[in-house]
Amino acid sequence: MRPRWLGELVHIHIAPEASYEMEALSEARLIAGRGIEGDRYFLGTGTYSAKPDIREVTLIEIETLEALQQGEPKIPGIRIELSPADHRRNLTTRGVPLNHLVGKRFRIGEVVLRGGRLNFPCKYIEELLGLPQLHDALLNRSGLNCSIEKGGVIRPGDPIEPLED
């Protein structure tokens, strides 16, 4: 069956510990059931919300960052410059309908992820980055927390496409 959509991995970022600045990677090794090598969630040193949760790897759409930069939608019209290094999700995607992938499998290069719950923006990041309103601006478009079903190495530019369950 032809894929219904085809996206692309734009950026990979990890943080070695909670609150540490994100570091861009030109390739990353994902370990099934754990996370990205070197990342805080892999190392178990991240800041987690209280809810039990799958968060081996987190994704966000670059389209969200572009909309934030333009202050879209016009109501409430929050305009924020949020760089891919600052949003604190691991993977920045283009052309991937993340909000529709809860519970679904999809492929990034050789790696297979399954969508967990939608990411919910936290006040923590707003304070950490000194960007008031960021929480509100990310509501309903804060990305997707995923588990890793099949590990491997990914690089920016890798294609992202849906898989059958």
């Binding site: 510990e17 609150s19 540490y20 600045e21 923590y124 304070e127 950490l128």
Partner: peptide
């Protein structure tokens, strides 16, 4: 206190 970003300088 508010959290602050830690940078590797």
């Amino acid at each position: 206190a508010t959290p602050r970003i830690v940078m590797k300088l």
